[in-house]
Amino acid sequence: MAEKRTMTLNLGEAEMRVLEELSAKKDLTKTAVLRQALRIYQTLDARIARGEKLLFENDATKEKAELMLL
């Protein structure tokens, strides 16, 4: 496994609550949740930079909505 580096992360109460909820829901450590978030964010950012769009489709209605990343 690649060498790891350590950092201190300051989160607000609501952010920490979300992190804890995601950690429980996804059965991941908080560190693993943040690593997943980073992977997904970088992938989305790269694809949008290539001119692709991020769309969500409602499975039932087939309605599509574009998510804008800033």
Binding site: K25, K26, D27, L28, Q36, R39, I40, T43
Partner: peptide, 14 residues
């Protein structure tokens, strides 16, 4: 490493 599981017992987990 980003997709989520589909099988009922682990659906939604990475």
């Amino acid at each position: 490493l980003t997709p989520l599981a589909r099988e009922d017992t682990q659906a939604g987990k990475p």
